[in-house]
């Protein structure tokens, strides 16, 4: 086999939240596929995407939960906050209502994630400047008041999409380094895979065993 299953040393779990139609799935698609998906269907419940990135020389696998924005799925998507190391909260710069709902999304995120979860605010559809309904400045102020990281991005052009995902990962990695994020805590949203990437075909079986045992320990408590 070519690439072993653990050619990365960390798994970070992300959740993408925000109103219906703000472009959550498109941001994810742009990030994982580097393509814009024009006619994106409504997400039913939840979708999933993954990509391996590099932060400070460490390979990190991002597992990203892309939640449905529709109100009827609100209950089921709520459960995905649990165990998320990063939350990307998205609004649409051309629709003020999606911006106004941010406080409700933020309440959910604060209530249901752990205190170390990095919350990143993304103003999507930044390419549609002519139809802008929310200014950069007011969103910037909202982010500052609530201690969020913030960027305006465009899933269409790809502008700032990489940055948003990577900055979140950097912040999480920084939290691990300075010890504020406890990897052993249940639902930290981060899994460490020691010796990730170095395991050959022979060593894989044992590595698998130990990691399976680890996850089980985490979950049973």
């Amino acid at each position: 086999m070519s690439a072993g299953p653990y050619n990365y040393s960390y798994i970070f779990k992300y959740i993408i939240i925000g109103d219906m139609g703000v472009g959550k799935s498109c941001l994810l698609h742009q990030f994982t596929e580097k393509k814009f998906m024009a006619d994106c269907p409504h997400t039913i419940g939840v979708e999933f995407g993954t990509r391996i990135i590099e932060v400070a020389g460490q390979k990190i696998k991002l597992q990203i939960w892309d939640t449905a924005g529709q109100e009827r799925f609100r209950a089921v998507t709520r459960s995905y906050y649990r165990g998320a190391a990063g939350a990307l909260m998205v609004y649409d710069v051309t629709r003020r209502s999606t911006y106004n709902h941010l406080s409700s999304w933020l309440t959910d995120a604060r209530n249901l994630t752990n205190p170390n979860t990095v919350i990143f605010l993304i103003g999507n559809k930044g390419d549609l400047d002519a139809q802008r309904d929310v200014t950069y400045e007011e969103a910037q102020q909202f982010a500052e008041e609530n201690g969020l990281m913030f960027v305006e991005a465009s899933a269409k052009t790809g502008e700032n999409v990489e940055e948003a995902f990577l900055e979140t990962a950097k912040k999480i990695y920084q939290n691990i380094q300075d010890g504020s994020l406890d990897l052993n805590a249940a639902e930290s949203g981060v899994q460490h895979k020691p010796n990730g990437g170095q395991a050959g075909a022979g060593g894989r079986a044992t590595l698998n065993n130990s990691s399976a045992g680890q996850t089980r320990e985490n979950c049973s408590c």
């Binding site: 419940g45 089921v76 165990g83 979950c219």
Partner: peptide
């Protein structure tokens, strides 16, 4: 049908 709309983030 569509169990993921009825059960979120289930592990076991």
């Amino acid at each position: 049908p569509d169990l993921h709309t009825k059960l979120g983030n289930l592990v076991h």
